[in-house]
Every structure is written in C-alpha cells, then in structure tokens.
Amino acid sequence: MLPIDTIQALARELYQARKTRTALRHFSARHPGMTIDDGYAIQRAWVALELADGRSILGRKIGLTSRAMQLSSQIDEPDYAPLMDDMFFQAGTDIPFNRFIAPRIEVELAFVLGRPLHGPRATLFDVLRATDYVVPAIEIIDARIEQFDRETKAPRKVFDTISDFAANAGIVLGGRPVKPDAVDLRWVGALLHKNGVVEETGLAAAVLNHPANGVAWLANKIAPHGEQLNAGDVVLAGSFTRPTTAVAGDSFHADYGPLGSVTFRLV
C-alpha cells in the first residue's frame, strides 16, 4: 500500500482537478507499485473531502462489467465508485459542458433499491427482491486523470480509473420505471443517438449476463468493509454500449423502446 500521506495528497489532487476541470497525469506512472487497493483508498479519501464540503452519496456505480473492458484493463472483475448528489442531472435539460473535462456517454440501467442489500452472499434474486424499480439511465464519464498520457499516449491503468471515481461524472435518469420482474432485463436494449445519428446499440445482457449480477457483485464486494447498499440507493449496473465522445453542443437521445427514452444536451 502507498503511504497514507501519499494517498491523502493524491485524493486532494483529484478533488482539485474536479473543481478546476484540469486533467492530471497518471498516478500509476508516478507510483509504479500502485495497486487496486491503493486506488480504492485514494477514492475513499476523495469521497471524504467531498462529504466535508456538504456533498452526499446517493448510490453507487459499477464499471468495467463487460469482458472486453476487463481484458483491456487487465483485470478479472468490475470496479465501483460512489454517486455524489451533484452528479445527478434532469433528463430533457441542457447540461453545462464546463462541468466536465473530456466527457463520454454510456447507456445503462439503474436499480433503485426499496430495501437494504448486503453481502457477502447476495445473489441476483436477492437484488430483484430488494429493488423497488429499474429505470433507463445515461452515465456521463470523465477523466480527471487523463485517459491517455499527454506525452507518451499510454492508456491509464485500472488503478488510475478506480482512483478517479471509476470515471463517473454525471447521471441522467429517465424513461419509464419498471418493476424488476416486469420484463426480462437481459433483453432490455437501447439505441444511443448523438445529434440524430445512431452511435451505439446494445443489450443489457452484456452486463455480466444480467445487470442484476453486477449489483449482487457490488453488495458482496463492499461487505468486507462493513458497508451495504441502502434503501433508496441508485445503483448504475454497468454500461452495455461503448463510450461515445461528446463536445459542447451535442444532443443525446437514448431510446429504450418500451421503457422510454433519456435525452439531454451539452451546452
């Protein structure tokens, strides 16, 4: 593990980077011995700074849920991070582009829990019983730590991404909420339009064969730390499309068919 003073210093850098919208170079390059545990330690220290500012945690996100993304990141499991209250935006509105550094867009399902869910032996069926409803969502991911190093062009490592709130920056919920047993969630699909053009399509089964599997994984993963998912938590289960780049002026429309749609514009 990195020394505690180093972890605190790196968390402070991320805290400032989010405020100033200035990307940092890879922590893993500066600290070659950095581990996944270091990444989560930095993430927790950053969360503490946000909480001290009066922010609150409204849920969690799960990332790197597809096999392809795990292979590219050289890991064999997803990652996770908190959803802070100031990351939520209303569907159908204009979202300030200057809230982000290099935003990209992903299509997901969000589980809103009606009762607590805790590990270490949570299953898909426990998730479905604990879920009040499932709703279409778009995640706006960002890079407080550069996706590619500005000089070497090397991609960031998973330790960097975990430190960086697992790249989370914004959440937009919309469409039609459904009970988790009202549809076969594996077959929920979406078309992601950017400026009227279909950029990505996907099925929710791409998330660990069933998006509820990701929520169960998360409950089990955080249990050893004495944590659980709580009633009212919003849990982003993982993207089932590739990230789509975004610039100021872009409009996005995620069409979930029978479950409605999510729209917004970056201005």
Rank of each mutant, 00 (worst) to 15 (best):
Y80F: 15
T93C: 06
S56H: 10
L124N: 13
D233L: 08
L49D: 02
V215C: 03
Q16N: 11
Q90N: 11
R242C: 04
T65Q: 10
S239K: 06
K61C: 09
P177H: 04
S163G: 01
L192E: 04
L2Y: 02
A248D: 11
E146I: 06
A248L: 00
A223I: 00
R21C: 08
D94R: 13
M84L: 15
A216H: 01
A68S: 15
R129V: 05
D184P: 05
L236M: 15
D38L: 01
A205T: 13
F111K: 05
K221Y: 11
A216C: 02
P103Y: 08
I62F: 07
E139F: 09
P155I: 03
N98G: 00
R186P: 02
Y15I: 02
R150I: 10
D149W: 07
L109W: 08
R30L: 14
V235S: 00
V235K: 00
A130Y: 07
G174S: 01
V197F: 09
V247F: 08
R30H: 14
V158E: 05
P3D: 14
R265Q: 15
L218Q: 08
D85N: 15
A205C: 12
G175H: 10
L51A: 07
I4H: 10
L117Q: 06
T245W: 08
L117G: 09
H210C: 08
P103G: 08
D76Y: 03
G189I: 00
A23G: 08
F27D: 04
D86E: 10
D233N: 14
R115E: 14
T6M: 01
D79L: 12
N213Y: 08
P224M: 06
I4Y: 05
A237Q: 04
M69I: 11
L236Q: 06
F264L: 04
D250L: 01
P136V: 06
G196K: 04
T20Y: 02
N220K: 11
R186Y: 03
G189M: 07
Q43G: 05
R144G: 06
E151R: 14
A154Q: 15
G119A: 05
P136H: 10
W46P: 00
G39Y: 09
L10I: 05
L173N: 01
P211R: 03
L185C: 12
D164E: 06
A167F: 08
G114R: 05
D94I: 09
A216W: 04
L185T: 13
G232N: 05
I162W: 02
L14C: 04
Y80I: 02
H193M: 14
Q90V: 11
D38A: 01
D149G: 11
L64F: 10
T152Y: 05
K19Y: 01
D184V: 10
F240V: 09
V207Y: 03
L185E: 12
I42H: 07
R99Y: 08
D255M: 03
H193N: 13
V135R: 13
L71D: 15
D94H: 12
F165W: 06
V172S: 01
G114Y: 08
R21T: 11
A52E: 14
I95R: 09
V172R: 05
V183F: 14
A122Y: 03
F125K: 03
S66K: 13
V247Q: 15
P180I: 10
L2G: 00
T131M: 07
